[in-house]
Every structure is written in C-alpha cells, then in structure tokens.
C-alpha cells in the first residue's frame, strides 16, 4: 500500500469527486482503495438522505442559558430595578394608612430618613400593610380572592319541610335495620359453614382427584422463559439475527 496515493484517494472521495487520472489508475490496482471507492459514496448518500429530526424546543433556551449563565439573572434584576415605580392614588394611601395605625402585625414605620429620601426622589413609599397584603395575595391568589368575596354572600336558610323530611327518614331507617341485621347474621353463619365444608372437602379430595400431568416439556437443568420480542435479546444476539435476516428482525424493515 502506497500511503500517499491512498490518502489522496481518500481525500478525493471525501470531496466527492475522483477525477484525477493517476488516482483512478491507482484505484484500479489497489484492492483497499477500490473497496473504499465503492462503499464511501454509498454511505455518504445514505447519510445525506436520512430524514431530518427536529431539534427539541428546549435546545434554544438551554443554549442561551449555557452561554449566558449567571449574567442573565443579573440582567433580569437590573431590568426590574430600572422599572419606574408608580405612585399609588392618594385615596388608597390614606385609607391604608388609617387602617394600619391600629394593626398589631404592622411592623415599625419606615425610618423617616428613608421616607424623606424617597419623597425627595419623587416617589411615595407604599404603606407596610400593603406589602403584607400583596405578599399574602401572591402566596395564594385563589384563597385571597375567595376570602375577599365570600363574606359578602347572602346566606339562605333551609325550608322547614326539608328538616322534617330528614328527621322522618332517619327514624324509618333505624326501624328497618333491626330485622335486616338479624337476617344478615343468620346468612353469614350459614355461609361460613358451607365454605368450611368446601375447604375441608377440597383438602381431603385433592390428592385423589389430581392426576400427574403428562409432561409436555422436556426436563432440563434450567427454567425456560418466553420473551415477547427479540428486543429482549442481548446486543450481540440481535446483531447476529440482523445479519441472518438481512435486517428483517429490526423494526426499520416493515
């Protein structure tokens, strides 16, 4: 084997074209290059014509996250901080302030220095109770919504007729249960007797009724189990089966 010419042949095959006369003459005389010249274009065509599989949707976000890990979080925080805070309407502020004055859960008032700093920046501080209410609402929005509105629902009272009917039914069922219970007890006792007799009969009669089965399976020094498909076989066995069946044993051939 001439390494340099064989390498050139391989390179030409990779580029998809074997036009050089000297290389073609070499291929005609070299068994390995002849084999490659036959097999490589087939393999290349097979690979290029394989169906394209779509990339998973998570790939985009995974790539971005991997490229910008850490920095993305910081960028998000900075963006949130740059958001302008809206001022609450004056009526809300005064109503909540009035409510929070008597609230024992209310934390201490923000320091006056902080308040002054915020007012100087043109932003009114939100009252503390608003923070607590917003926090509770964010924890369980559905519960907060229900609690807000359920107290205002109008309560209805049950009609008197319904009360009497429930009482009558209760009394009647108690009267009927008594004889039924006695009947059930009697039937259970009889059933126990019958079952006991059946079990005793089976235990006594089984040795006489059972016959040794005709052995339809040859006796071997191991247990034999049946697999439902060839997929249960080891890789080396599947490879051999694939070769033996010209690929019919795999699912691609249908």
């Amino acid at each position: 084997m001439n390494p340099s010419l064989c390498d050139l042949v391989r390179s030409a095959l990779l580029e998809g074209d074997l036009v050089d006369t000297a290389l073609r003459e070499h291929v005609a005389g070299c068994a390995e290059c002849r084999h490659a010249a036959r097999a490589w274009p087939l393999a290349a065509r097979a690979l290029t014509e394989l169906p394209r599989e779509p990339a998973p949707r998570e790939l985009d976000s995974a790539v971005v996250a991997a490229l910008h890990a850490g920095a993305r979080t910081e960028r998000a925080i900075q963006a949130l901080q740059r958001l302008a805070r809206l001022s609450p309407p004056p009526q809300l502020s005064s109503a909540l302030d009035a409510n929070s004055e008597g609230n024992e859960h209310d934390a201490e008032a923000p320091p006056s220095a902080e308040v002054e700093r915020l007012r100087a920046a043109g932003r009114a501080p939100a009252p503390r109770v608003l923070d607590r209410l917003v926090h509770e609402e964010l924890l369980d929005p559905a519960k907060a919504h229900v609690r807000r509105h359920v107290g205002g629902l109008h309560r209805l009272t049950a009609p008197e007729a319904l009360r009497e009917r429930v009482a009558d039914n209760f009394t009647r069922e108690r009267r009927e249960r008594a004889p039924r219970a006695a009947l059930r007890k009697h039937a259970a006792r009889r059933l126990r007797l019958v079952l006991g007799a059946a079990v005793a009969f089976a235990l006594l009669a089984l040795p006489f009724l059972s016959r040794p089965e005709e052995p339809d399976v040859k006796s071997r020094p191991f247990r034999v189990e049946r697999a439902s498909s060839v997929g249960a076989l080891s890789p080396i066995t599947r490879d051999l089966l694939n070769a033996a069946s010209s690929g019919m044993s795999t699912r691609e051939r249908s």
């Binding site: 191991f222 247990r223 034999v224 697999a227 498909s229 060839v230 080891s234 051999l240 069946s245």
Partner: peptide, 28 residues
C-alpha cells in the same frame, strides 16, 4: 436460578440465551 429466555422466531431462526451456572450463553 438458571434461566434461559427463548425469543420469538425470526423466520426460520430461533434464539435462546440465558445465565447458566453464573455464566452467559446464547444459542441461535
């Protein structure tokens, strides 16, 4: 236990493989 698993036939080919006395065997 010593167990041999028999796979469904592929055409005329049958296969059986398993663990016998702690060693792996395949017959096809």
């Amino acid at each position: 236990d010593d167990v041999v698993v028999v796979a469904p036939p592929v055409g005329p080919w049958n296969t059986a493989e398993g663990s016998l006395h702690g060693e792996l065997f395949t017959a096809m």
